[in-house]
């Protein structure tokens, strides 16, 4: 019993460390990839090829002064960054990186992740409200409206693979894709999921909450130092979560020939992460009404139609 608890704790520790390192190096990859896409170099000076840049950034953020503006709602202001970060990291608990590398193999893995991503919005709302600044409030309102809208489309598109696999357990969904990866029969859902995943994580071209030109920086404008870093950690951890979900639901998770399962999983996940950066380097930002139109009038109806057709087909085949 005690041994099992210790073992689980070690597992959790390893995954958290890996996630935080991954997050740090994602910022590096982002600057490098976008730099090269703009025919620049990206960071090169800190360490060989700039590989120590995340470390330098982290040290800078930690040693910065932690400022609290005068008129903020202090308790809420202090709690918000944690609420922004914790759901992103907690979601890794159910993700099967390989057949035997998973912290908690629970039956409602998909729902667990959806629930956590819907809780993630509180960090944003609370920081925006507690900051007592019009930019932060506007940013957080935009962000939460966007997340709530796109979560519907995302949930509906996730249901396609869930129906095909007949399970909410992420491992069973992965195993169901031994023959055929779900992004072929569920291509529409795959496209909808990709779009709403980008919107859900507030990334370009849907990064309205952080529109630098109009909102300064959105909901985290009043934060500095480590608290600011926590929002960043949360955002990138969320990107990893949606990438993992994409790999599991549509790209067959850890299944694949020749290479070990963990490598397959990482390849698929990082490919989707690259897609995030690629989109950011390519597309301009949408206007807010365009964003809402796309979410409610295009993605949700298509996702509903896809769900209907999928369930009819699944019903016809199963019986």
């Amino acid at each position: 019993m005690v041994l099992a608890i210790v073992f689980t704790l070690i597992k959790i520790l390893i995954i958290v460390v890996c996630v935080l390192t991954g997050v740090a190096y994602m910022t590096y990859a982002e600057r490098k990839v976008i730099g090269h896409m703009q025919v620049r170099l990206g960071p090169v000076h800190t360490g060989p090829m700039g590989l120590l840049q995340p470390l330098a950034d982290g040290l800078k953020l930690m040693s910065k002064e932690d400022m609290t503006p005068d008129m903020v709602d202090k308790p809420v202001f202090y709690v918000a960054p944690f609420l922004g970060m914790v759901p992103g990291i907690a979601a890794f608990a159910v993700i099967p990186f390989a057949p035997n590398i998973v912290v908690a193999d629970i039956n409602v893995g998909v729902l667990y992740i959806l629930a956590l991503s819907s809780v993630g919005v509180y960090g944003i709302i609370m920081s925006g409200w507690a900051s007592n600044s019009k930019y932060a409030t506007l940013g957080s309102l935009r962000s939460s409206a966007q997340i709530i809208s796109y979560e519907t489309a995302m949930g509906l598109s996730i249901l396609g693979p869930v129906l095909l696999a007949g399970s909410l357990n992420l491992k069973e969904i992965t195993e169901a894709q031994r023959g055929l990866w779900f992004f072929i029969p569920q291509f529409v859902a795959f496209v909808i999921y990709s779009i709403s995943a980008v919107a859900e994580t507030n990334r370009a071209p849907f990064d309205l909450p952080e529109a630098e030109t109009e909102l300064v920086a959105g909901f985290h404008v009043e934060y500095s130092g480590m608290r600011f870093a926590m929002f960043f950690l949360g955002e990138y951890a969320n990107m990893y979560v949606v990438s993992c979900m994409c790999a599991i639901l549509f790209l067959g998770g850890y299944t694949g020939p020749l290479l070990p399962p963990l490598v397959w999983f990482l390849i698929k996940m990082l490919a989707f992460m690259f897609f995030f950066l690629w989109l950011r380097a390519t597309l301009p930002r949408l206007r807010f009404d365009q964003l809402m139109n796309l979410g409610w009038k295009v993605l949700i109806p298509i996702a509903l139609a896809n769900l209907l057709i999928t369930s009819i087909v699944v019903y016809a085949i199963r019986n």
Partner: peptide, 15 residues
């Protein structure tokens, strides 16, 4: 557009 950015990624940087 995605194709253009991807092709630019493999160009030699002008920095």
């Amino acid at each position: 557009g995605l194709g253009i950015t991807l092709s630019h990624m493999f160009k030699k940087p002008v920095t």
